[in-house]
Structure formats: C-alpha cells, structure tokens
Amino acid sequence: MDGDRTPTTQRVLSLLDLLQRRAVWSGAELAAELGVTTRSVRRDVDRLRDLGYPVESERGAGGGYRLGSGRRLPPLLLDDAEAVAVAIALRLAAGGAVAGVGEHALHALTKLDQVMPGRLREKVAAVTESTVAVAGHDAPVDPALLLELGHAVRGTERVRLDYRDRLGRETERRVEPYRIVVLGRRWYLLAHDLDRDDWRTFRLDRIGAAHRTGWRFAPRADVPDPGEHVQRSVTGTQYAHLARVVVEAPITEVAELFPPAYATLTEVRPAGHPDGPACLLESGADDLDVLAWYLARLPAPFRVESPPGLTDRLAALADRLAGAAGLPWAR
C-alpha cells in the first residue's frame, strides 16, 4: 500500500489531465503532482492504456511518460470552461486564417455539441449565433504546417525550415521553436536561429515546409517574452525605416488606429497627468511616404523623434493635401 486514499477513477482522470498539459513527464514528477508513489503512477498508466489511451514511456535521461497518437482519438478531458472555449473557437475557425479548416471545424463542433450538456450548449449558442466570421485577405496558413510546428514546440524538437524572407529569397533555417504567436490575422513562429545564434520571428505563411529532426533541445534561459518580441519584430526591426513618434493622446485612443500588428505603443504620460496623456508610437515601413500617410491619421498633435527624413515627407504630404483642399498657403 502507498497510502494514497484518492479514488482510483479520480486519480486516473487527474493523470490524464496532466499528460494532456505537457509533452513529457517523469514518473517522479507525476507522483509528486498526484501525491502518490511512482508505483501507483505505473498502475494508473496501465489503466489508461486499457482504456485506449496511447501512453508511451521511455527510460533514461530525458525520458518519461507522454501521451502519444493512436489509431483513433480517445475522449478529451475538458472542464466546462474549456469545453465552451473550444466550441467557440471551432465556430470562429470557419472564418479564420488557417486554410481548409472551416469544414473540419464545423464537423468537430457538431460532434462536441452532441456530448455537451444543455447548460453549456446554451452558453456557446449565445456567442456563436450572434457572431459573424468574415475571412480576411492575408495569406492562409497550411494547417498541416501549424500542427507540425505545434508538435515541435511542445516536444522541444529542432526543426529545419524552408523559408522565404520578405525580399522573396529562399533560405533554409535551422531553429529551436519556442512559441507560435498570433498577431492580428497573421501567425508567427518565435524561434532561436541556430546559424545566426539569435532570436528570430518567422511568418508562417512564408514557411514552405517544416522538417522535424527528432533532436530534442534544452530550453534556453534567455527566452524573450513571445508576444512582445514578435510585435517589435513585426512592427519595426524588419523594415528599412523605424519611426518613433510621441503622440499627445491616450494610448487607448491611438491603439484604435494602430493595432498591435502595425505598431508598438508605450505610455509616456497617463491620463490625468498635468500636461495631458501621451504615448510613444513605434512603427516601421520600407517607404517613408507610407509612414507619413499613416501618421497623418493620428487624432492628436504629435512629434517625430526619428527618422530625420520623416518630417520632410510629412511636410510634402501636408502641402499636397492643402493644395487639394484649395487652401491659400499651399505651394
């Protein structure tokens, strides 16, 4: 006897929940989470296998227990909040940016709806029946690629990417994938580029193929914040020109015109400040005229900190607009 008084069924379900949360667990880690001995863990793993769950085990350093893929998909363990979230996500996936998932998402939603209790079905209906998903114009992402990268991220497995950069050049990149980030309607991969020894952001619609190598890697200690790193990479560092502009307006007001996919916003002065609210806008472009046009849409006075040539383009734009409006001071 190992002293465990938790009912067997409850403990097995808890074990299944843990295996679904993370790629690999050691026996000692599972025993600590469940408050039992490693012997009980081995018995409960055997019970899951008897129920049809393909629990794999591997001895040695880096080994442990993992939930593998089987011939048929076993039931998923979802609590009420997770079931509602999955159902809503499936409904909205029909208009999402992943190619070809619409029909499959609706089939999966139908199956989930059949097993959901009425109280949860009503919650899902309240959202999905009042929501319309319209497909965007961004390049769609291959769902098979998304799954491959998801497995590599979860399993800390190195990947070779067939990648096309923003100039259209075809390259091969050896990377350690860390997170898949959705920014606006586009998907990005945050990874450590082994050849460049640096953190890089890759657009998924520019990845021709992802080849999993089978080589595991140890997570690095200097992992940046995924959302912040990708946003800064997308809105500035990959462009020829990076603008830094102080806007005399609340950050929430500026964010309505410059969402995360287009700019990084940092509060300079909060609302209620004696000099009024202000924020720093950082956004990039390959053409200064494009930056000038976007900045002209700002709802409040602003000051350009950089680059120097941007003020000249703003002046030229102001002159053209004044001439179009027939103002007397237009040149």
Rank of each mutant, 00 (worst) to 15 (best):
D79W: 00
R11P: 08
D2E: 15
V132E: 10
L242V: 14
P260T: 00
Y262M: 09
L120V: 11
L265K: 03
T201R: 06
S69N: 03
T266C: 08
V230Q: 02
G276E: 13
R121N: 02
E248I: 06
L13F: 13
G60Y: 09
A93H: 07
T6D: 03
A133V: 11
A261N: 13
P177D: 15
R269I: 14
E129H: 06
A99P: 09
E172C: 08
A263I: 07
P274G: 05
R173T: 05
A126S: 06
T37N: 12
A28E: 15
L183W: 12
P140M: 04
E33D: 08
Y294I: 00
S40P: 02
S26H: 05
V223G: 02
H211Y: 07
H137F: 07
A152K: 01
D275P: 00
V268R: 06
L48V: 07
E129Q: 05
P307A: 09
P301C: 12
V234K: 04
H192Y: 15
Q20R: 15
S283P: 12
L77D: 03
L120W: 01
I207R: 02
V230T: 14
P307L: 14
P143M: 14
P7C: 11
R21N: 12
Q238E: 04
A296L: 08
Y53D: 06
G70R: 01
W215G: 00
D46L: 09
R186P: 04
P299N: 13
R206T: 03
L295K: 04
W187T: 00
R166F: 15
L167G: 15
V41Y: 14
V41W: 11
Y294S: 06
L73R: 15
D142A: 14
V153N: 05
R331F: 01
A191L: 06
A93R: 08
A240L: 06
V141W: 13
V124F: 11
D46M: 10
D2F: 05
E170A: 13
E228P: 09
R186E: 15
D222G: 15
L73N: 10
V115I: 11
F258M: 08
E170N: 11
G62S: 08
Y178V: 08
R43A: 08
W329V: 10
A221E: 12
H241S: 02
V124K: 02
R169C: 04
L281K: 03
G284Q: 04
Y262H: 11
A126G: 03
P219D: 02
R200E: 01
R220P: 06
Q20W: 08
A285W: 06
R22N: 12
E305H: 14
V153Q: 10
L161K: 07
A278M: 12
D80L: 06
R49A: 08
Q231D: 05
V246Y: 05
L321S: 00
E253M: 01
P140S: 05
Y53G: 03
R47I: 00
V134A: 04
H273D: 13
T8M: 13
V132A: 05
L106K: 08
C279E: 11
A261P: 14
L288K: 12
